[in-house]
């Protein structure tokens, strides 16, 4: 075990705005949280809570933000550099939209390597396919020849092949069937253990978040309302009303089932 916790990520007083002038919308308000290396951190909230916006700010896709964002000890500015991209990668929600429809799996995985003039591309592609449980015969398929679960595996392979250490997961299983979700969540946990990855998981599904994450921040209307850990979530020992309401709603009509 590690003697001291290394912070992989830290957000300090993060504010994000969209639009300008009269239409300006304050999407994230004074968010602060940190994630240690090897930890799995969840961001939960309903639509409009700002959780996906935080991911955008980290990846450099949000233009108007203030505060401090630190990844692996380095503060982030307006632009992101090569160094950042080699550490941080993202898995998107919609498997039908995150792969280029005219590129084969092979092109999708080889492109990041070719951009870095990496060697051994063939071997690395085959290896990353195996790591995500895909048969190498799928290598030259197009996305429309793959199922939703298979596409998501390719998306995960795309992050692994770049040796990313910090993965941003934006609702990675919301668009998948329940049985496929189970496979993907297990896969994510397996590779996290094998490679010592750090996860920031954004989701609206409390059950998924409680399964995957060690600590969870609950967001509402741009603010982090409460930060709890797995145990508190499972026993519903929360401090704020909103957190309690969220947990109870996720049982909702599910009360009869045990």
């Amino acid at each position: 075990m590690q003697l001291e916790k290394i912070q992989m990520f830290e957000a300090n007083n993060l504010n994000v705005w969209f639009g300008a002038g009269a239409d300006r919308f304050h999407a994230v308000k004074k968010a602060s949280f940190s994630i240690s290396q090897g930890e799995s951190f969840g961001l939960v909230g309903e639509s409009g809570s700002g959780k996906s916006t935080i991911l955008k700010a980290i990846t450099g896709l949000a233009e108007n933000w203030t505060g401090r964002l630190t990844v692996d000890g380095e503060d982030l500015g307006q632009k992101r550099d090569r160094d950042f991209y080699s550490k941080v990668q993202m898995v998107f929600q919609d498997p039908y939209a995150s792969l280029h429809p005219r590129h084969t799996v092979d092109r999708c995985l080889s492109e990041p390597l070719r951009m870095r003039n990496a060697s051994n591309i063939d071997a690395r592609i085959n290896q990353s396919l195996l790591e995500v449980g895909l048969d190498p015969t799928y290598r030259f398929r197009y996305p429309h020849q793959l199922s939703g679960g298979q596409r998501q595996r390719v998306a995960i392979a795309r992050t692994l092949i770049q040796d990313a250490k910090f993965l941003l997961l934006d609702e990675p299983t919301s668009a998948l069937d329940v049985s496929v979700q189970a496979e993907i969540l297990n896969l994510l946990n397996d590779i996290k253990k094998q490679k010592g990855l750090t996860y920031l998981l954004v989701s609206h599904d409390l059950a998924v978040v409680s399964h995957m994450c060690d600590r969870i921040a609950i967001m509402q209307s741009g603010k982090i309302v409460e930060t709890i850990d797995k145990k508190m979530l499972q026993t519903a020992t929360t401090k704020t009303d909103y957190a309690a309401a969220l947990i109870s709603a996720s049982y909702g009509f599910k009360r009869e089932i045990v």
Partner: peptide, 10 residues
């Protein structure tokens, strides 16, 4: 069984 559960974590 493949559903993650808040009450019965696996």
């Amino acid at each position: 069984n493949s559903l993650p559960s808040l009450q019965n974590p696996t």
